[in-house]
């Protein structure tokens, strides 16, 4: 795989990343539209696939891969789409067409903790829509890993128990939106 593209992908340089993101986008959309993937889903899936590709670049997984970056990205996309639609048989027969002639195919298995599937994207969307207090509390607890005791004074709450009750309320809000 082209080493310069891998280096660009590993960077957090806006222009380099944008050039790669835009560079593969049309082909990715065109290809998966011919798979009858719901067009509403494609922008999300492409973003997830691109982010997963970047993670693989950072972890050094791309260094020894023989196929091109585009093929690899498409394989990630394919994996995600199959995961989302859970209709493996419908998609399997497309596999031979998924790489350019003369290239080696790669089998890609993604760790579910490495990307957001449709359900988790929905959760992320609802999280974004929560009021600021809930977002702050949940971020401190889950992302920063702080204890309820530590969170209480930071958020002007009298004690850990108050934080616990409010955290539960915030989770409940997300739960009810997920079930609606």
């Amino acid at each position: 795989m082209d080493q310069k593209s891998i280096a660009d992908l590993q960077s957090d340089d806006r222009l380099k990343l944008k050039s790669l993101y835009d560079g593969f986008r049309d082909a990715f959309f065109g290809f998966f539209q011919s798979w009858h993937v719901d067009e509403n889903d494609l922008p999300d899936i492409y973003q997830e696939a691109f982010l997963a590709l970047r993670k693989h670049a950072i972890n050094g997984k791309l260094d020894t891969v023989k196929c091109g970056m585009k093929t690899y990205l498409f394989q990630i996309g394919k994996y995600m789409i199959i995961d989302q639609y859970k209709q493996r048989s419908k998609f399997e027969n497309i596999e031979p067409h998924l790489h350019l002639a003369g290239e080696e195919t790669v089998d890609i298995v993604l760790d579910p903790h490495d990307f957001l599937n449709a359900e988790k994207r929905k959760l992320k969307k609802f999280f974004k829509e929560l009021d600021e207090k809930c977002r702050e509390l949940l971020t401190l607890f889950y992302y920063r890993g702080l204890s309820l005791e530590e969170i209480a004074p930071m958020t002007n709450r009298s004690n850990a128990n108050v934080v616990k009750v409010q955290k539960h309320r915030c989770l409940e809000k997300l739960r009810s939106r997920m079930l609606n």
């Binding site: 922008p43 988790k120 949940l138 889950y142 989770l171």
Partner: peptide, 26 residues
């Protein structure tokens, strides 16, 4: 329980500056 199980990942992704950049590209 599912919401709880996935909150760590969701809040982590939400705070990822590269993800936010990619969302802007899109």
């Amino acid at each position: 329980a599912w919401v709880h199980d996935n909150m760590a990942q969701v809040t982590k992704e939400e705070n990822d500056p590269v993800r936010n950049m990619i969302e802007e590209f899109e």
